[in-house]
């Protein structure tokens, strides 16, 4: 009798679990932040130029299956990094929307900042070369005042205006 009850409970639990799972799959929000984090890592290859998060399932059959696979992995408890690893192992780095931050692809990420840093240092030395008195404190008090500068400009524009009026 006991075993029958257990089997009955197990069956109920299974049916309940399956129905919950079905509802989950059916009502899954393909625009949720969690799904975005996982799906936006992968490029759709249908030619739309979008990632699998943005690609419209109405016009692209490829993304329908891909999205379902991702949901399945998420339901298994995989995080975005594990999903990423899974697809990279199968399709290679080409499937990603951005290069990996390792190996040769790291050059893609580092190069803009390295160039900016080198150019920044070069500009510092150029400014240093141009500054008249080397080694002087750059924040030395100066008699020149901003308001005076503005006033000077306004005054000269007014003089110019009058000059053009009468000459």
């Amino acid at each position: 009798m006991k075993s029958k009850i257990y089997i009955g409970l197990l069956l109920i639990a299974f049916i309940f679990h399956a129905s919950v799972f079905q509802v989950q799959a059916k009502e899954f929000d393909y625009k949720s932040k969690k799904f975005e984090a996982a799906a936006s890592q992968f490029m759709c290859t249908c030619g739309c130029g979008q990632d699998h998060f943005e690609c419209d399932p109405k016009t692209c059959n490829l993304t329908v299956g891909f999205k379902e696979d991702i949901v399945e992995m998420m339901n298994k408890g995989w995080d975005k990094d594990k999903i990423r690893e899974y697809y990279v192992n199968i399709y290679g780095e080409e499937i990603l929307t951005a290069p990996e931050k390792s190996g040769f692809s790291l050059v893609a990420w580092v190069m803009p900042f390295a160039a900016l840093g080198i150019a920044g240092v070069a500009i510092f030395f150029i400014i240093r070369k141009w500054v008249k008195k080397k080694g002087m404190d750059e924040l030395t008090p100066d008699s020149e005042d901003q308001t005076d500068e503005v006033e000077e400009e306004i005054l000269s524009s007014m003089i110019d205006e009058q000059r053009k009026k009468y000459l």
Binding site: P99, W109, L116
Partner: peptide
């Protein structure tokens, strides 16, 4: 501008160096 240029041409650079044409998209 250099960052944009570099990201735009990097798929070609990557393909030339190691034969893999990566995508450089919005996250980059």
């Amino acid at each position: 501008a250099f960052g944009v240029f570099w990201g735009t041409v990097f798929p070609l650079v990557s393909e030339a160096v190691r034969g893999t044409k990566v995508t450089v998209g919005m996250p980059f």
